[in-house]
Amino acid sequence: MPKCPNPECGHDNVDGTQFCEMCGEELEQDAAAPVVVGDTVFCPKCNAANAADNVACEACGADLPQSDAPDADVASAPAPENEPAVASAPDTAEPQSDEDDASQNQVDAAPVPDAPAGPKLEPGQVKLSVEQGMVTGKQYVLGDPEMLVGREDEDEEIYPDIDLDDQDEGYVHRRHATLKFDDGQLTVTHLGGGNKTRINNRPIPDNEAQPLKLGDKVSFGKVVLRVLPNA
């Protein structure tokens, strides 16, 4: 019988309750242990098979536990063998709150990588392809020198260049990040919201342009995209 963690309440709720019936406090759910087989991790929520480096389940979008991967080009590095891909217990069924994420902001921020070597990138030569999201395979060509990534909000008159509204369930902020071409280099800047922008699974600091190179995996909230050449 889950007891409400709110010290002023402490109500004994019926098993299965997700929010305390008396005070609305979120109750801790019994999270199932994730099942990891080789390079495959099974979603603790829906049991779907995912690649071990997925940050979110491809079937239901739930958080997946992350490996202690290096911050360098994870996407192109071979997956370590015989090593557990799980660093910690998964989140419960509830999506991670902005606040929870924000509290980790300082400690989790990725170190600023060195300037990437590689071809010069110009508008129109690069695209982002959705690898994890509601519509996988959808592509966004980066055709402008600077583009806003976020979710459309008619009330606030926010119309991002890359609108991810149809890709997730509210984890992408309305003004989430900007992508910018500058002197042959593509950068991404997280605009400060609690649900982070990540490069190769690592959160980046707020309001600091971070270089992106071809093959990188960039995540906005729970939507994961691959940086690809636009042939």
Binding site: Q18, A32, A33, F42, N47
Partner: peptide, 27 residues
């Protein structure tokens, strides 16, 4: 089975969150 018991229908969970948001307003 723990894995089966931990499955959630996110559409319903979201509606439940909306309902609880309203309860918190009343509180």
């Amino acid at each position: 089975n723990e894995v089966e018991l931990s499955q959630r229908n996110q559409e319903v969970v979201r509606l439940l969150q909306e309902a609880n948001d309203y309860k918190l307003q009343i509180d």
